[in-house]
Design a protein around this nucleic acid. Structure first.
Lengths: 224, 224
DNA sequence: ACCTGAACACCGTTCAAGT
DNA sequence: ACCTGAACACCGTTCAAGT
């Protein structure tokens, strides 16, 4: 009787940069990055959009923060690991991250200003290569080849249908309808003769090109 | 004296879908895709934004049209060409297109509905591979590997600095300032020891990874 | 120190009205 | 058939005002 009860059962958590970023990440994962607006994010946090500006400089800063969280999820190989194993594991981890957060590939594109979190990744890849005996020039070549592949694959994966074999089959049927076999025989062959029959696993598909590239780099290293 | 002179020297051209698309393309090339709005495009064409809807279903349709123009600029190799030469030439032409239109890579991502213009490209690549004797499965692998690389490289190129050696050097200096050598020795080595000294040519860099991948595919074909 | 209301300059798009 | 004005539901962001 002496003290008035708190007006609401769950007292509002104080806003912090981390809470803002985490909530933005969940929103982006669930509804897509294009529907992440300062106003919606504010509503989600029970606050007016303008309050967010106390914890984040502007929307660009928010997106920078998301990009840093994303690259931070890429596995860091233990030191002393074989160069091939280290690069392979990092590549697979990067693809998994980009598949988990479909918005991340797009953010990597637009966040061009360097940040510590985003600089650590290329630094580590170049380090693995140099320590393995690649020349500076070859390390640059290898980095571009690997990174282009990883990134490009992730974007293709994001834009192609996925899901259970049944869902995949149903989407494939829709696509086939726009591709008359007489005009597109090879696309039909691939979809009808392979994807619909045997399914499609992005992780497996990714490893084919990854190993092809790593094999090629191995030969260059052996020849050097 | 009999007829009144036309009020303006250059009578307004009638709006057509092609004029709308061409103007949008120029705007995107010059100011970037993010500043391409229906309202600005209308202003550019001397018309209210709403008039554009007589020639284009909506903004999505406009972007679809731009994506179709972009893929249409990728060179189609002459028939009967060696598979390796055909794939190589197409890949180089695709990279050139994506470098010419920095907005195109992003559009390829978002335009997921198939269109004839955009289906012709994968159809042709798969055709080259199948005719060269690759199995359906290997043709899929090869397509993903090549296309991921091309696309990923183009995006990296778009986001990294370019220009004359002097411009490149000045941007590199700015980047270096954010990368203390003690923490990022390998990035420093690459930038100071190689890029600043020898410059950097994206077309050359692209061909390294491209040839590595084509060599790998050639071995698979020989072994099959 | 943090949050808010009102306001500004933008978006894409619909719809009834004009020619 | 094509173009327009007014309107709607959205944006990001600033700024003075509240607590």
């Amino acid at each position: 009787m002496a003290t008035r009860p708190k007006p609401i059962a769950t007292p509002r958590l104080p806003l912090t940069r981390d809470r803002v970023l985490l909530s933005a990440l969940e929103l982006a994962d669930r509804d897509g990055i294009e529907s992440l607006s300062m106003r919606k994010l504010g509503r989600r946090l029970g606050v007016e959009a303008m309050s967010l500006y106390n914890h984040v400089a502007d929307k660009d800063d928010l997106l920078d923060g998301l990009a840093d969280i994303a690259v931070g999820e890429i596995e860091v190989p233990s030191i002393g690991e074989d160069w091939r194993a280290a690069l392979r594991r990092r590549a697979i981890s990067a693809r998994e991250m980009l598949a988990r957060h479909p918005w991340a590939a797009g953010l990597m594109e637009s966040r061009t200003n360097p940040s510590p979190a985003r600089s650590r990744y290329p630094e580590a890849v170049l380090g693995s290569l140099r320590q393995a005996g690649f020349s500076v020039e070859m390390a640059i070549h290898a980095f571009f080849t690997l990174d282009s592949y990883i990134y490009g694959f992730a974007v293709q994966e994001r834009n192609l249908p996925s899901g259970t074999p049944e869902q995949l089959a149903s989407v494939a049927q829709d696509i086939l309808r726009a591709l008359p076999p007489a005009e597109y025989p090879y696309l039909n062959e691939v979809i009808v003769g392979h994807v619909l029959k045997l399914g499609f696993d992005y992780a497996d598909e990714f490893e084919f090109g990854l190993d092809l590239i790593l094999d090629g780099l191995g030969e260059i290293r052996a020849g050097a």
